[in-house]
Design a protein around this nucleic acid. Sequence first.
DNA 1: TCTTGATCCTCCAGCTACTAGAGGATGTAG
DNA 2: CTACATCCTCTAGTAGCTGGAGGATCAAGA
Lengths: 144, 144
Amino acid sequence: MPIGALARATGVKVPTIRYYEAIALLPAPFRSSNNRRHYSARDVARLSFIRHARELGFELDAIRTLVALQDRPEKSCSEADSIVGTRLIEVGEKITYLSNLKMELERMLQGCGHGRIANCRVIEVLADHGECCHHQPLPPRKKS
Amino acid sequence: MPIGALARATGVKVPTIRYYEAIALLPAPFRSSNNRRHYSARDVARLSFIRHARELGFELDAIRTLVALQDRPEKSCSEADSIVGTRLIEVGEKITYLSNLKMELERMLQGCGHGRIANCRVIEVLADHGECCHHQPLPPRKKS
DNA sequence: TCTTGATCCTCCAGCTACTAGAGGATGTAG
DNA sequence: CTACATCCTCTAGTAGCTGGAGGATCAAGA
């Protein structure tokens, strides 16, 4: 199975597959004489696993750990649980953060009389932090 | 007011201020003879505006527009409204997305018997996309 | 006056997780 | 035989910073 077929089978783009190989998230596959990569069903499974974990928002480092765990069936799953638990907390916090943000954006829009900038509520609120209810720190730099 | 004082006054880090200047989000300030930047109260206001907009998750490009609008009080605020409205929609979609994700992560954790990897629900669900209810595409690459 | 420590300067590299493109070799179908 | 698709490597770009190297300057205390 060439790389294009793997891409179609998993929904992961070809350059992304090569990228995963470069960062050793995927093992270097067998190469045929013409230097082309060839993949097996096992590779399809592994890449699908990775893609699914990405959809759930896990970082590549976490996924690296999860993939490694998958290959050790006798281990306790406490580490996997902990990764998922951490992610769950993150997602919960993000939802709270975004919900507050949403309320504030709504208030801004509602307060705006749709006239001139000079008395635009939107610009006012942005200019004066005291006028709003959003007092959280900048969100941590993270993925979705 | 030197750059360090501006940083303390606004809560924006010194390298970030220089970065904003480099991308022309902040105007190049007056430099004293020793080549050091000096800022005014107006700069404090402008940078606070930017910081607040960042906290609300606006992209720097959007902020650039908002800052420019602020300087034209006679203009209609429809453009500002539209930027906020777009952001509001984004935030709403993200909340929906993350809420689904949260439910799925919770189901994964609940289903796990906390035993061995071999029968870990967490790993199983990741391995088999069919076992979960999450059928959304990968989220678009975006900020918070 | 000297020294110490804080602050400032510029420039460059790195972070995440890709994505896109150049430039070229090979495979496949009509 | 000619297209066209697919493959290869390598490099650079995205957003929004962040941190460090290497060096200059300033303010305060001994």
